[in-house]
């Protein structure tokens, strides 16, 4: 029973990395994958539905840390980690604001401000996650060489996850390229699929550098369970190695998920001050959360099933289509 809250927290954080990795990574890759207004519009409509369902995992995790593991906060929010957490929060705010506000005003300038917020926010998020993991492993200092390489590796893993996601979601809803003139194929999706291979190779290289730093005395992190660290780190390395040999996105959907899921688990190599929540706290939180657990599962499964299809052409987050289309056309409704 004592391990249940810790497992719950781990599940939430791993869920966050796997699901939010898709939309954060695709946001990071936006300048490369989407260069024309129509492409950017499609990219945002691919991200937008996902982020609502994925960021709640992090909000839940922060809540669980606040309620059940208050002593974890000392590790996460002290000294240099305080600064990284503040940057992470800034990135989170920027990215969400960009996504929420982008479709509300129909001018190019507004959209480019929101796009910049989306891209820079996604990068800040990914890099600060890397610094947090690296900083934790370095004993609370996010500015060691090891932490910096860690940040780079995590950013590549996010990008890979985003590219694998983009290869599926950037395909138009129907063959006619979403109602307006354009090629029947989706060049962005092909580009994303191609990028998974490059990114997997880059990731493999940065993982190797990280491993070298660990082996090199003086630069490596001081962890309590080095064997576990090596074992967990071997997971993304293997996943990357599998993906790097393929040209298509077929496997990268799964390998990128496995690789990014291993990132937060690296912290398991540390003796984190988890503590055991007292009985009263467990009774209150367990009694209130367990009954709604089925609803959480149903909601998440339904949302992700509904969004599995290629992105829609209309909706809250989608800007109106470009004005150059001919009158009398039929807007497809799926």
């Amino acid at each position: 029973m004592e391990i249940a809250p810790a497992l719950f927290l781990t599940g939430l954080i791993v869920g966050y990395f796997v699901l939010a990795g898709c939309d954060i990574g695709l946001g990071m890759a936006a300048p490369y994958l989407a260069r024309t207004p129509a492409e950017r519009r499609r990219l945002v409509s691919a991200i937008a539905p996902y982020f609502l369902g994925s960021e709640v995992w992090l909000v839940g995790a922060v809540g669980v840390v606040a309620g059940l593991f208050p002593s974890l906060k000392d590790v996460l929010f002290e000294g240099g980690m305080w600064a990284v957490s503040t940057v992470l929060l800034t990135g989170w705010l920027m990215r969400d604001a960009g996504l929420w506000l982008r479709a509300r005003v129909d001018t190019g300038a507004w959209r480019s401000v929101c796009d910049s917020a989306l891209v820079s926010g996604s990068w800040l998020l990914a890099l600060s996650w890397g610094l947090i993991i690296g900083g934790l492993l370095s004993g609370g200092d996010p500015l060691t060489p090891f932490s910096l390489v860690c940040a780079l590796t995590v950013a590549v893993l996010f990008l890979l996850r985003g590219a694998a996601f983009g290869a599926e979601r950037l395909v138009p809803a129907d063959g006619s390229a979403s109602g307006h003139t354009g090629p029947a194929t989706a060049p962005e999706a092909d580009q994303a699929a191609w990028a998974t291979r490059v990114l997997a190779r880059t990731g493999l290289a940065t993982t190797a550098v990280t491993a070298a730093l660990v082996a090199f005395p003086g630069t490596g992190p001081a962890v309590d369970r080095p064997l576990l660290l090596a074992a967990v780190a071997a997971v993304p390395a293997t996943a990357l190695a599998i993906t790097s040999g393929l040209s298509g996105p077929h496997l990268s959907r799964h390998t990128s998920a496995v690789a990014i899921a291993a990132v937060p688990l690296l912290a398991g190599a540390l003796n984190l001050p988890l503590g055991t929540p007292p009985a009263g706290t467990l009774l209150l939180t367990g009694g209130a959360i367990l009954p709604v657990l089925p609803l959480m599962v149903v909601g998440q499964v339904a949302l992700h099933r509904m969004l599995r299809r290629p992105a829609d052409d209309h909706g809250f987050f989608v800007t109106p289509p470009p004005q150059d289309s001919q009158p009398g056309r039929t807007v497809p409704v799926s």
Partner: peptide, 21 residues
């Protein structure tokens, strides 16, 4: 933390998570 944070944990998990989804 264990007293003040517990209802906040419930709010984040039991309410906000479901609400936003």
């Amino acid at each position: 933390g264990y007293a003040f944070g517990a209802p906040l944990a419930i709010e984040a998990m039991g309410a906000f998570f479901v609400e936003s989804t």
